[in-house]
């Protein structure tokens, strides 16, 4: 038992427990909170696996960005404070049945995974530096990519680098940015009932704060 194992067990326990708690709870903001704990645990597992840059990206983009976005979504779409989600028993049954089946299949597959026969060797190999990741994204692999390519110079490993996916992801992000802004744009109230309070507030007095004030007032009245 060495400290690698200790930390793995602690982090895995945090991750798994909070993931299960996120499913069980019916309170949506608590769900987001458990998601944060779970994602933080996953970031810790990344650090433990030597993927420092990945762990920091996970913390920054996922925990700092995505989950804040989700919390925003909860607050902007809440009609009463502390929204609860009703899950009917049949849905729970369906969910649990699927969960049981899936875990049976996946754990079975996991157990069949060829495991090393002898005790695993100790490693002192350093983690990947962020510079390596950066150059790989820019189209140049500086690590020995695969045994087949050893002995060749750097130019030969160009084929394995990730310049094109990197560009695709950037363009994709831009597209999503514009698309999301277009979808969630404020619209003029048309007077129909279904337009909702939020949009009315956006249209009349303009600005996010007015909409928030209207939302908060509605929440306060509801409680």
């Amino acid at each position: 038992m060495d400290w690698n194992w200790v930390f793995f067990i602690i982090l895995a326990a945090i991750t798994v427990t909070s993931a299960v708690a996120a499913v069980i709870t019916s309170h949506i903001v608590r769900m987001a909170f458990y998601l944060v704990v779970c994602l933080g645990g996953v970031a810790g597992l990344f650090f433990l696996a030597g993927a420092y840059f990945l762990g920091a990206v996970q913390l920054m983009v996922y925990v700092g960005g995505t989950v804040v976005l989700i919390a925003f979504g909860v607050m902007l779409t809440a009609r009463t404070p502390f929204v609860r989600m009703q899950t009917t028993p049949d849905q729970w049954l369906l969910g649990l049945a699927t969960a049981a089946t899936l875990s049976a299949v996946l754990v079975q597959a996991n157990l069949r995974f060829p495991r090393p026969a002898d005790p695993p060797p100790a490693v002192t190999e350093p983690a990947v530096s962020p510079g390596g990741l950066g150059t790989a994204l820019l189209g140049l692999r500086i690590d020995a990519a695969s045994p087949a390519e050893e002995g060749t110079d750097g130019a030969a490993s160009l084929g394995l680098a990730y310049l094109l996916p990197f560009e695709l992801v950037s363009v994709h992000l831009l597209t999503v940015l514009i698309g999301a802004a277009y979808l969630a744009r404020p619209r003029r109230p048309t007077g129909t009932e279904s337009e909702g309070r939020r949009e009315a507030a956006w249209g009349q007095s303009g600005g996010p704060d007015a909409a928030l004030a209207a939302l908060a007032a509605a929440q306060d009245g509801g409680s």
Partner: peptide, 16 residues
């Protein structure tokens, strides 16, 4: 070796 990034990432968590 990614201390700058780590600090910025973790400091951003306070908002949650």
């Amino acid at each position: 070796n990614i201390a700058v990034f780590f600090i910025l990432a973790v400091a951003g968590l306070e908002v949650f």
